[in-house]
Structure formats: structure tokens, C-alpha cells
Design a binder for these strands. Sequence first.
DNA 1: CTGTTAGCGCATTCAA
DNA 2: TTGAATGCGCTAACAG
Lengths: 341, 341
Amino acid sequence: MTIEDAGTAPARRTTLADVARQAGVSTALVSLVMRGAPGASPANREKVFRVARELGYVPDSRARALRQGRSQLLGVMFHVQQPFHADVIEGVYEAAEAAGYDVVLSAVTDSRSEDKAIGTLLADRCEAVILVAPQSSREWLAEVGGRLPTVVLVRHVRHPDLSVVRAADMKGLGLAVDHLVGLGHRRIVHVDGAGSPSAEQRRRGYRAAMARHGLEPRIVRGGWAEINGSQAVEQLLSEDDLPTAILAFNDPCANGVLSTLHRSGISVPEEVSVIGFDDTHLAGFSHIGLTTVRQDAGQMARMAVGRAISLIERKDDPEVHRDGVVVPDLVVRGTTGPCRQ
Amino acid sequence: MTIEDAGTAPARRTTLADVARQAGVSTALVSLVMRGAPGASPANREKVFRVARELGYVPDSRARALRQGRSQLLGVMFHVQQPFHADVIEGVYEAAEAAGYDVVLSAVTDSRSEDKAIGTLLADRCEAVILVAPQSSREWLAEVGGRLPTVVLVRHVRHPDLSVVRAADMKGLGLAVDHLVGLGHRRIVHVDGAGSPSAEQRRRGYRAAMARHGLEPRIVRGGWAEINGSQAVEQLLSEDDLPTAILAFNDPCANGVLSTLHRSGISVPEEVSVIGFDDTHLAGFSHIGLTTVRQDAGQMARMAVGRAISLIERKDDPEVHRDGVVVPDLVVRGTTGPCRQ
DNA sequence: CTGTTAGCGCATTCAA
DNA sequence: TTGAATGCGCTAACAG
């Protein structure tokens, strides 16, 4: 035993062969029984199950996949600190299970890049990947799309190898602006998503809606996290140029906006109205419920899984090559009110 | 082609053999080069890399694991809607990578039980599992622990087959109560975690601290989610028996408490002080920053990974069999203030 | 109904 | 420094 392998051998797990030997039958029979396939006598079926349970046998999913030539695996890349992504994951698990696929998650964190997250998904031999709000370049996404069926969620990108599911961002921002204008607001600022996925579309939707109402747009740099909303408000305060309403890029960003407004003694919605985007399940619980543009995570997840499977199974579904657009709606809660200026 | 397999064949991926053939060398050589092992000429190394890149070759992690007899995989079961778990995951990825292990995540959702989440981890042949705040019975956890190295995070459970990493919950609740008493509060209610992991310890910590100060404890049923905090406050309001301070089970629960207090026109901290537990990265952004008991997710993640690896590699580390206790500290922000009654 | 055989993609002897 | 052979745990095709 060399230093390299000293004590690094994990215990061997029970295999199908162990069960077969113990039950006094062939491995093929055990395989049949474990898969619930027909072709085994009730007596043997019973016996195999009993021995498997006694031995604590769990089939090795990797060996099975290797042999079958397919993994039945859907890979999901997501950002671990995004509450909205958690909502999507719930939906993906549900839809994938219903379709007979397993799910493998690969998280993006501060110390784990999207490249790495996607790389492990490839190494796991996923049959398709669902990328939730990827920030990678269009070129890299296209390359992934060229390698295996790829569904991009919550990001605008047009490429023949990429199937896109997203919300109608422009429509969503339009709803938000209309709501605020209806409340008498004219000085409406958009704290944007900077380089985040779909940030550009939301900027466009904001600009278009403002133009429609003959209002002057103003965009302040934000981002997808709380801290970005917080910093944006600090900047507005330092310029002594606070608007009467703020449209945040998403719910976490809106939370940051609210937090800093509150800390600065500015009341919401009396002095400033705030709107988010996503309708994360947390949005309703931000002390005052957050008025926000809702995009249905469950519906998007189901669409994404459906498309992924269509691509895997080469169903000639033309829909797959069009953007799957989910229509958002405005959820009015407590952070918006009439303009008092 | 039968109906069963119609169009269900996913495209074949590039294999090591493809690279070998294309590069005009043996598969063994390609294997060496891809693993960065010594024993190949610079020229060949170069050539193999080039061909691999051209063909878009990614090693099959399952085949590799199967052959090596070990997966180098750490399984993590977590609850997808818990922000604190996201913080833990960040730390686990970092620590695992540093130790040369890969991580496989298995989420618990409304429609996906802990049993199922752990089952897939077993089928994936993880060498150890880290269970974050498991709610399963002690018996089932022990059974898992009997099958493979198991580290339980954020839950009190004593069993020879389970390695535990947790915060000093009693200490944490003590800090919170002391802080409130120091501010003059006497009617302090604990909105508990009901059957959640470590809820019992936190109840105990609360009771002990209240007794120390000669105060009457009062516990209202809560839970780990926003809705539970919200409902608890509704109950207190309906009984017209609002305390001057509320200790919530965790941050999301505290958020629900704050939300409903605000909706009911009760000001924080003027009329009621509120304290959470966890110090999720969101806590600082709840409009008024949430005063909370901090447990260091990164530190706990590092401990958990260290223990998991010790167990896998059979290092005789006696620490592994003792509870790994992380000392919490109180982070005072804006939701606590002097008692005005 | 049951057992035997072959091979999925890879890493690892061992020989050349 | 390189290549041919072997087997990880499992399933699919076939033979009995």
C-alpha cells in the first residue's frame, strides 16, 4: 500500500451479482425483477425482492446508464442564490419525473462558473440541458447547443441550436409602467439588470413604455442581487434626484431598493413606489408585499422540460424552434401607491 | 423500429476511442493524457489534446467512476426553498473541490420527498452524503448512516453512524433573549420551528434563557417558512395578546412575522422587536435589516465536507464522532429596539 | 420462465 | 513510451 492510496478505498457496495448469488438465481433474473420487467415467476420475484432488501441493494444508476447507452438525465444549470431559480427547479423535477426522466442539478456560485457547471453536466452525459438565466456569451451557449439539446430559460438569444423559453419582458415592463402612470407617476426610474440575462429586453420594454406615455426614461445601473438595488438607490440619493417610482430588474433587486429606501427614512409607497419582477414566493413577504411582475416559474419549467424531451426524442415539433413566450401579469401589492407630488 | 423506441435514441457522444482512432494512437494513451498522468511524449500529448478539442470530447464521468471503483462523489440533500441551504451549498462546492471531490445535489421540494432525494444519491453511488436539515426520522437517518458515511447538518441527532455538524442552538437563543432583556423586554414570545430540525433545541434554549431571567416563556407554533411566521402573528393578533418581542425560528419565519406585523400597522421595532436565526444573506435586506442569530454556513459546510472525507478515507479522526458545534453570534440590526411598555 | 454471453466507456495491468 | 487485453455493474439478445 503506497502513500497515494493509503486508506482511500471506500467500502464496496452491494451489487446485482451479490443479490443473484444470495438468492440462488442468475443476474439477468435479478435485473428483470429490479426493473419491474415481465418474465419472472412470482416466487422468484418475491425472493429477489426480499434478498435485495436484506442486502440493502440499490441499482447503480451509472452502470445502468452506461449499459443502456442513455442516461435519461436532464441537466439543469442554475444560480444557487436566485430564489426564482428555486421555483423553476421545483417545476422541472415535477415535469421531468412525469416524463420518466431524472434530473441532475449543477449550481453556479461565486466560486463555480457557468462553464464549470455546464462541463459537469456534459461529463454526466445528460441527454439535454436546461440553462436557467445563463450569463455566458451567445457563442458559448451556441457551442453547447451544438453538442446536445439545449433549452435556455429566461434569456433572449436567437440561434438555431438553442430553444428559448422566456417571459414577454417588454410586455411585463409595459404593464408596470402603465400601472405607475395610472397612479399619476411621471418620474419613473428603471434600476436595470446591467449585464444580466434579459436585462436588455427589460430596458427596451421600459423605454418603449415611457415613450408611449411621452415620459423621459432614466436608467440607473443595477443587477440581479439585493446589493445592486441597494447601491442604485444610494446613487440616486447622492445625486439628490430621487424619482417617485422605481422599477427594479427583479425581486431581489427590488428588495435592495426597499431596504435602502427604508434605511434612509423614505416611506414606501407614500414617497416612492417600487415594483419588482419575478414574483418569487418571497415577494409577498417583504413586510409590505412587493408589487411585482409575475412570470410563472412552473409553466416555464414545464415548457422547458417539454422542449428538452422533444429535442432528445427528435419529435418534429416546430414549436421548439420558436421562442416559448410566457405572458407575465402584474401583481399589485403594497409597494405602489398614488403619486403625491 | 417499433413504437416503443421510435425516435428515442439520443445522439451518440464522442468517446475516448474516437479520439484515439482520430489521433492514431491507443486508447490507453488518450486516457493518460486526459487525466494529466505522466507517460506520454510531449508530441503525442499535444496531438491528443488537439484532436480531443476538435471532436469536443468530454470524458464520461460514469464510465470513469465505474472503472475506478469509486465515484469521488459527495452527495448533498438540501431543501430548495431554504436560502440558508443555498449558503451551505456554496461552501460545500468550495471545500469539496479543494479536496478533489465532486458534488451531486439532490433537492427536496413539495413534490420530492427526502426519501427520494436520498435514494437518488445512493443510486448515484456517492461515497458520502451530507444531509442539510433533514426532517426524516432518526431511524431512517441511522439506516442511511449504516449504508454509507453520513454527515447531518443543522439537526440534533445522536447515533454512532451519524456525524453531526450544528450550531449551538441553545447558546444562540440565549444570546437573543439576553439582548431583548437588556432592552427591557419581558413579554418575549418564541415562534418555534414546530417539527423542523433543531426546533426542539431552540425551544429548549429559549425556555432556559427565559427561566434564567425569571420570565414566563410562551411558545407559539411556527415553522421554517414565511407563511408559518405570518400565521403565528395572526394567531397572536386574534388572541389580542401581542408580546413586545418575537423570537422567530429562522430568518424566513421572521420575514413572515415582519410582513404580517407591518400589514397590521404594527411598527417594528417601536411596538414589537423581532429576531431571526441563520443570518441568510437576505437578512440584511429586509427593508429594516433583520436582527438575527448568525450561524456560519461556510464554516459548517467546511466542517461537514471534512468529516465526510474523513469517514470515506477511514481516517481515525475521533472528532468525527463528536458533534461539530459552531458557535453562533448575534447580529444586531434594525428590528430590535428598547421596550416601550 | 430462466441462464449464458457480450459489451456500454473507461482505466489499468502487463508486455512489447 | 506505447498498445492489447481485462473487467467495473449492468442490461439486452439469445439459448435452453
